[in-house]
């Protein structure tokens, strides 16, 4: 398969970097949304293949209840408020809930059975709980492990790509 992702962009591409605690949505076919270096954070890509719109969330912590004021300012910092904000923003572009393809990556963890530093696991658990509550399914995922990852959503192709730190190869996690 020809390489789809992480290539030098043509001039028509609009590259957007999604920092920690941020999200973006777009229906511009030239938009390429990228999260560099997902550690225990969660990267969530959603895409509606009918209206060809999607978005990418870079959430840091599972639960906004630890800092509601911060969640008010930056909902994308937390998985619960971030997911709600991501879906709302996609609906503004004409996306519909049950058409959305949902991909998730990140949530790396340390070698720790005691769970003292289990932010990655809790981020993913929160995510799956919320999806289950809303009757939504995951289209593709690559979570856990001991690596950091770069995640990309290409709106035009409706594709989600991943690159693992320390490896030259890239993978296509999902393609519509």
């Amino acid at each position: 398969m020809p390489s789809l992702c992480f290539k030098k962009p043509p001039v028509s591409e609009k590259r957007l970097v999604i920092g920690v605690g941020a999200l973006e949505v777009s229906k511009d076919p030239g938009a390429v949304l990228t999260i560099f270096s997902l550690g225990s954070c969660l990267g969530v890509a959603i895409y509606d293949p009918v209206v060809r719109a999607g978005g990418l969330l870079h959430a840091m912590l599972p639960d906004s209840s630890i800092n509601p004021a911060r969640a008010g300012e930056r909902p994308a910092m937390f998985v619960d408020t971030g997911l709600a904000a991501l879906f709302r923003a996609a609906y503004q572009l004409g996306a519909e809930k049950h058409r959305l393809r949902i991909c998730v990556a990140g949530a790396s963890h340390f070698m720790d059975d005691s769970g003292f530093f289990n932010i990655g696991q809790r981020n993913f658990q929160q995510f799956t709980d919320i999806l289950r509550h809303h009757g939504l399914a995951i289209a593709a995922q690559e979570v856990g492990g001991f690596v950091s990852r770069t995640m990309q959503l290409r709106i035009g192709a409706g594709a989600v790509c991943l690159k693992t730190s320390g490896q030259n190869s890239e993978t296509i996690l999902y393609r519509s």
Binding site: G39, C41, F110, S114, F117, I119, S148, G166
Partner: peptide, 19 residues
């Protein structure tokens, strides 16, 4: 730093938890 994605390289999260 690892949690925030700044822990690049091979298997860099393979760090023992020290509760």
């Amino acid at each position: 730093a690892h949690c925030l994605g700044q822990g690049q390289g091979y298997q860099s999260f393979a760090i023992r938890g020290r509760p």
